[in-house]
């Protein structure tokens, strides 16, 4: 790439390595979006355009993919995304109460980010932790049996 690349050398190398796992460059597009999102937290328009170019896709083709998948963020999110399960067992075991509790502690609703940019809260489908419902992902950490005491521990700066 030329000097005006937005992506870092590490990101460019990472994408090249991902492409090597598939017979077509395009097949690496979801992996590439995830790789770039890892540090940047979300996929801005100019970043999307550069990845599309690298993979030989049109911007529209890549955006079509990016907007389909809920774990690709096309808007800024907080440092830590809290994904609280809203599927059936967690619903039954009190996830709505937990959601209200988190909302109150962080003063945000679903889809919002705290003013300090630390947390974004979103609902998610079943996390495969139903035997420890209610469950959530905090960043990459799976947490089960979420209750007020767990939240005190996980969100110490925002005690209820």
């Amino acid at each position: 790439m030329t000097a005006k690349s937005i992506l870092t050398a590490a990101e460019l190398d990472g994408i090249a390595a991902l492409i090597s796992h598939y017979p077509t460059a395009r097949a690496a597009c979801i992996d590439s979006l995830k790789l770039v999102q890892e540090k940047r937290r979300y996929i801005a328009d100019d970043v999307l355009a550069e990845i599309a170019h690298l993979l030989g896709m049109s911007v529209a083709e890549l955006d079509e993919v990016a907007t389909f998948y809920n774990l690709i963020y096309r808007q800024p999110v907080g440092e830590t995304v809290i994904l609280l399960c809203d599927s059936v067992t967690c619903w039954m075991m009190g996830r709505n109460q937990v959601a209200a509790d988190i909302s109150k502690r962080l003063a945000i609703k679903d889809g919002e980010t705290t003013a300090d940019g630390k947390y974004t809260m979103l609902p998610i489908v079943c996390l495969g932790h139903c035997d420890h419902a209610p469950a959530m992902l905090m960043g990459k950490t799976l947490v089960g049996n979420v209750d007020a005491a767990q939240l005190d521990r996980l969100l110490p700066e925002a005690r209820a």
Binding site: S87, V88, T89, V125, C126, G128, H129, C130, D131
Partner: peptide, 8 residues
């Protein structure tokens, strides 16, 4: 892909 609610 295990995403069927209730499956773990």
């Amino acid at each position: 892909d295990e995403m069927e609610p209730g499956t773990f």
